[in-house]
Design a protein around this nucleic acid. Structure first.
Length: 481
RNA sequence: GGCCCUAUCGUCUAACGGUUAGGACAUCGCCUUUUCAAGGCGGUAAUCAGAGUUCGAUUCUCUGUAGGGUCACCA
């Protein structure tokens, strides 16, 4: 009836979400939103062995943090409830029955050990293992009718009987024409002996039932696509459009990013103080680009410009440095009010001042960098008189006498500023006037900065003076004379 | 091993037969009122190799090489 775009993200609850999975979710989300379509979250919990307690909540928390919001799914429901595959078992049985009735599904007569021995044998003979070579004979074929396999009582796995062994060619929205040889096709398991469907079967049933039009997925699924297509054919249903995403590689650039080789839980990035908008921005650009030189995007902007046709084909390596830069760019766009809460989370009580924010905001690429600043004592000057060796006040080849002389001049002039006019700009004007009359400006500015901060690296003296206020500034300068 | 995918600066990428091969991160240098940060300017740096096709290949074809993926009662 309508051509509404429906995409889905279908993670399995086997642990945390890493950036690879999130990026798939993001692209599916962007595509749905761009087309005023529907984005569905579906939990593929059909492997009770691998399921990790609490994963679903963790996945939901991750997506929510990043503002990837689903239109249908756990927590909010929708017209295709339920959204946990473990609660949809009847549906898979229904579809399995259709295949059985067509003579396209049969119970696997072997034990797991027997199948394993087939596999081992094939491997030792250096040929691919195909279950269909061991397909049991049907008990009789009625003329023109379906084959009669052993009746399936649910105690054995139910296998799909590939209707036709052939090569498949299909079009992928990202990669274009893809193909796979007949060896990619096999009698795979539809329903396991524990009654749960396999991914290969369940995701197809659900995509059909939920009206999914575009499937975003990793390229690890390319080689099993013929299996999917053969099921759609057997069911006589048109498959969705596939958009296969290039892999994200780990930091070494070698291996596809995965939990085994150190892929991080995305929530760790939250804990390190990255902005969700920056994470989204960075992940969007990992494997996709807008076609021009723009790099900084908000989610809304991404929705506007995102296009499947500009998704790349080759693997991209995760790059923390660029992420840091991008996060900093997003921080710059934050209003004081927006960042106040975040920054205050990291600051001890005595530093919770708006004046500190202005110093911090320009010096960190992510909020947890504030911890480093605190550790290095870079903010101590704010509430603590600095301790330093007098010699440190000397600028280059100057002398302590010169330091005293210059600071005294500064004190004399600064005294003239009203307390309430003791701002960065006014202090700067006064000090620059003196400094410019000197042989080198550092003769004045360095000792003052050092006397106020006690640090080799710090903000400039005008800002510090402003923050400290007239009294404290002058008092610290007096001590340096 | 079979099948499949991929290949441009260190990294992310642009250039859909004709460009001094562009941008960004990182790096280096200079400037910007002392140091840091921010900012500005500039530099170094790439078409995996070899054959074709073509007047002309980063771009098309083939081969090689390298990397990745996949061959589960995992997704």
């Amino acid at each position: 009836m309508d051509n509404k775009v429906v995409t889905r993200f279908a993670p399995s609850p086997t642990g945390f979400m890493h950036v690879g999975g999130i990026r798939t979710a993001l692209y599916a989300y962007l595509w749905a939103k761009k087309n005023n379509g529907t984005f569905i979250l579906r939990i593929e919990d059909t492997d009770k062995e691998r399921e990790v307690e609490g994963s679903i909540d963790h996945i939901i928390e991750s997506l929510k943090w990043l503002n990837i919001n689903w239109d249908e799914g756990p927590n909010i429901g929708g017209s295709h409830e339920p959204y946990l595959q473990s609660q949809r078992l009847d549906l898979y049985k229904k579809y399995a029955q259709i295949l059985i009735d067509k003579g396209l599904a049969y119970p696997d007569p072997y034990t797991e050990e027997e199948v394993d021995s087939f596999r081992t044998k094939a491997e030792s003979e250096k040929r691919p293992f195909l279950f269909r070579d061991h397909r049991p004979a049907s008990t009789g074929v009625s003329l023109g009718g379906p084959e009669n396999f052993e009746k399936w009582d649910g105690s054995k796995p139910l296998r799909f009987k590939v209707p036709e062994i052939k090569s498949y060619h299909w079009n992928d929205l990202v990669y274009g024409d893809l193909s796979a040889g007949p060896e990619a096709l096999d009698d795979f398991i539809l329903i396991k002996s524990d009654g749960y469907p396999t991914y290969n079967f369940a995701h197809i049933v659900d995509d059909i039932e939920m009206g999914v039009t575009h499937v975003m997925r990793g390229q690890e699924f390319i080689s099993s696509t013929p299996k999917f297509l053969s099921i759609y054919e057997a069911l006589d249903i048109k498959p969705p459009l596939y958009a296969t995403l290039p892999p994200i590689m780990g930091k070494d650039g070698k291996k596809k990013l995965g939990k085994r080789d150190g892929a991080k839980d995305v929530l760790e990035y939250r804990n390190e103080g990255y902005l969700p908008g920056a994470m989204i921005n960075f992940m969007a650009l990992l494997g996709w680009n807008p076609g021009d030189d723009r790099e900084i995007f908000t989610m809304e902007e991404l929705i506007k410009v995102f296009d499947i046709s500009r998704i790349g084909h080759s693997g991209a390596q995760w790059n923390d440095e660029k992420l840091d830069w991008m996060n900093k760019e997003h921080i710059k766009k934050l209003s004081l009010e927006d960042m106040k809460e975040e920054i205050f989370k990291y600051l001890p009580e005595e530093l919770k001042s708006e004046k500190i924010i202005s110093i911090v905001r320009e010096r960190v690429s992510k909020w947890s960098d504030i911890n480093d600043m605190l550790e290095k004592g870079e903010l101590d000057f704010f509430y603590k008189e600095p301790e330093y060796e007098k010699e440190k006040l000397i600028y280059k080849n100057s002398s302590l006498e010169k330091v005293s002389e210059n600071i005294s001049k500064a004190i004399f002039e600064l005294e003239k500023i009203n307390e309430k006019d003791f701002t960065t700009d006014n202090v700067k004007n006064v000090l620059m006037q003196i400094a410019n009359s000197l042989e080198s400006r550092g003769e004045l500015l360095h000792p003052i900065r050092y006397a106020l901060s006690g640090l080799d690296k710090s903000p400039d003296p005008f800002v510090i003076a402003d923050i400290l206020g007239k009294n404290e500034t002058l008092s610290r300068l007096q001590k340096a004379v």
